[in-house]
Computed example of a mutant assay.
Amino acid sequence: MSDERRKRALEETEWLEDEIEELLNDDIAPFHDEFDLPEELLEIYATAPPSKLSRKVYLGELLMLQRELIKLQEWVVDSGEKIAIIFEGRDSAGKGGAIKRITQRLNPRVARVVALNKPTERETTQWYFQRYVPHLPSGGEIVLFDRSWYNRSGVEQVMGFATPDQVEQFYQDVPEFERMLVRSGIRVIKYWFSITDEEQQRRFSMRILDPLKQWKLSPMDLQARVQWEQYTKAKEQAFERTNIPEAPWFIVEGNDKKVARLNCISHLLEQVPYDDVPHEPIELPERVYNSNYERQVIPSELYVKNRYG
C-alpha cells in the first residue's frame, strides 16, 4: 500500500468505527426529540448500570471474535461438522442479542436460527421431540435454537401447559435423546443465560415503555415475572437432570450484555476444535465489454424515491 493510500485509510478509521457502532448497537438510547419518549424511560436509561466494557473495547473484541467465527464456519463447511447450539434462560436475559452477534457476519445458509412458535394442535399429538428433529443440522451446518425442547421443563411446566407425567417423561427421555444426537455426530452445546431479578425488572420496564422494544414483550413474559421462583425451581431441576457429560450446560451471566456476548462467543469457539481452512488466492476477473451492447432506458417510476441522498 502506498503512503498516500495508507494515510487515507488511517484518516477513515474514525468514520469506520462510527459505522460499525451504528450497525452493532441495538440498544440505542433515545437521542432525538421526535421520538417523544416518556420521562420514565429516559430515567431508566439514565440510571441503568454501565457496562464494565467501554464501547470501543467491546466492539474491538467483538470484531476479533466474529473473525474467528468466520473461520469456524469455514471449517464446519469443509469438515462436514454438525453443530446444534441451545440457548435457554430467563426472559430478557440476552439470548437474542448473543445469537445476533454470533450470526451477524456468518452465511445464513450455514448458520441458521430456529425459533419455533407454540405447538400447533397437530404437533401437540406428536412425539414431543418430533417438531425439533427437522431443524437439526445436516453436515456443514450450525443451528442455533432460540429456545428448544427445554420449553417442556420451563414454560410448559411452570404455566401448566404440560402435565406432571409429561414433564417426568421429558426428563427421562431428554438425556438419551441428546446422547443419540451426539452419537449421530451432532455436537450439542447448551447455554443458559442468567440475570438477576432486579435486572429483569429493569429490562421489562424498558420494553413496556420503549416503542422499539415493545414487540419483545409477550403475555408469557409478564407472567414470568409473577412466577420467578417457580422458574428458578424449574431451572434447578433441569440442571440436575439434564446436565450430562455428552451435552453439559454452560451458564452465561447476563446482567452486563456486552460482557455476556463476548464471554459466550469466546466460550463457543473453545468448544469446537476448528482449524484454518486453506484457500486459493482470489482474483477479480476482467469484465467483458461488448461494443454492440446498448443499455435500455429504465422507466423512472421503477426507481425508489430518493429521500435522503
Rank of each mutant, 00 (worst) to 15 (best):
R101D: 00
M220H: 04
D275L: 15
P134R: 01
E141F: 07
E236V: 06
I86V: 15
R131Q: 07
R101Y: 00
Q130L: 07
Y303I: 01
V76T: 08
I44P: 07
E17V: 14
F250G: 10
A48Q: 09
P278Q: 00
I298E: 03
V272W: 03
Q166A: 09
D91E: 04
R179G: 11
P273K: 09
N292E: 15
L136Y: 05
E43Y: 12
M206L: 15
E81P: 11
I85A: 08
D221M: 07
F204S: 01
I83N: 05
N243Q: 00
N151V: 10
F87T: 08
R147C: 04
R122C: 12
Y132V: 08
H32K: 12
L37N: 06
F193Y: 06
L217K: 03
S79H: 11
S92T: 15
L69F: 04
Q104S: 12
E199A: 05
P175Q: 04
Y150M: 04
Y293W: 10
G185I: 02
D36M: 13
F170K: 03
E240Q: 15
I186G: 05
H32P: 08
Q66F: 00
R105G: 08
Q157C: 14
E294R: 13
E246C: 02
D197C: 14
Q223E: 13
A48H: 09
S153A: 14
A9M: 15
D26P: 14
E40S: 11
N117T: 14
S79F: 08
V288T: 11
G96R: 00
W149T: 06
N263G: 10
I265M: 00
N107M: 03
I85T: 10
E246F: 02
G185D: 07
S2W: 09
E81K: 13
P137N: 05
V57E: 14
R203F: 02
E168D: 15
Y128S: 00
Q126S: 08
L63M: 12
I189R: 01
F239I: 04
V57K: 14
E199F: 02
F170V: 04
E199R: 05
R109P: 10
P134K: 06
E156N: 10
T124S: 11
S54M: 03
I195K: 02
E4G: 14
D275W: 11
L23C: 12
F204Y: 08
L72K: 01
I20V: 15
K71S: 10
G97I: 02
W149S: 05
A98T: 04
D18R: 15
D197Q: 15
E229R: 11
Y58W: 01
T232R: 10
I186K: 05
V167Q: 01
L116S: 02
N243R: 03
Y171P: 07
D173K: 13
H32Q: 12
E11Y: 09
K305T: 14
